[in-house]
């Protein structure tokens, strides 16, 4: 069954077209890495898929239902969770409150408690800091908390925006390893947006390279890594 089907998606910021006629498909359970330099339109793409960007045309379907035009809170209820750029935790709230937030849309509190317990199992470091403010966490821990919050909603499709941003190389490695484990364990479909092309493609099934709002290449992650032209032009190594 096809998971995420994006078809001729265009997004404008006022008069500027930030994304032009982007099409790709991510099968259920796959991890797609969206690669591109700063300003290529990667974040714009994720924001359109989670309902934050509304100036869209074309179509994007998740499990055969349209997602463009739906509000973010409605998409969360349909199993789509977006971890936005820059360690998206709420610094004024405690670690626990940030996690509870992920399940706040549910009417049954017990489901959220169970989901939080699972997340703490995945990220034991969060369990030790439940009552601390999110502000007191390190960069890597914050990123875990942000992903953890998204997992509390038990998503089926996870949209990750630059989880490596601002983290030390060693921590980046950890985060990518965690994402890889997570999606296998939970059967998640993941769209991972990254500037850190190599690390992202290493754990991806599928890669999409975006430049100036357009898809310039896409294919199996392993093939993209080996393509000498792409390496030189977009992957930067």
């Amino acid at each position: 069954m096809s998971g995420l089907v994006v078809n001729r998606l265009s997004v404008s910021h006022g008069a500027i077209k930030a994304l032009r006629s982007v099409s790709f498909t991510v099968e259920v359970g796959q991890l797609a890495a969206v690669i591109g330099s700063n300003g290529a339109g990667k974040t714009t793409l994720l924001r359109a898929l989670s309902g934050l960007n509304t100036q869209t045309s074309g179509s994007a379907q998740w499990k055969e239902r349209e997602i463009l035009g739906a509000r973010p809170d409605a998409l969360v209820r349909r199993g789509i969770s977006h971890v936005s750029e820059g360690k998206s935790v709420i610094a004024e709230l405690s670690v626990k409150e940030n996690l509870v937030l992920g399940g706040i849309w549910r009417s049954k509190k017990s489901d959220t408690s169970a989901a939080i317990a699972e997340v703490v199992e995945l990220f034991p470091v969060l369990g030790q800091r439940m009552s601390q403010s999110a502000d007191s966490l390190s960069g890597g821990e914050r990123q875990m908390l942000a992903i953890g919050r998204a997992l509390v909603s038990r998503p089926k499709l996870l949209l990750l925006d630059e989880p490596s941003l601002g983290l030390a190389p060693l921590v980046i490695e950890q985060i990518f390893a965690t994402i890889d484990q997570l999606r296998r364990r939970l059967g998640l479909t993941v769209v991972l947006v990254e500037q850190n092309a190599m690390s992202a493609l290493e754990i991806a099934d599928f890669g999409i390279i975006i430049n100036l709002g357009e898809v310039v290449a896409s294919g199996k992650a392993s093939e993209l890594i080996d393509d000498p032209v792409l390496r030189a032009a977009y992957l930067g190594y």
Binding site: P72, D73, H82, S84, I90, E92, G102
Partner: peptide
């Protein structure tokens, strides 16, 4: 504090 994150968490802000 963070309307966008709240929205992404499923809150009808």
């Amino acid at each position: 504090y963070a309307p966008e994150i709240a929205q992404l968490a499923g809150i009808r802000t």
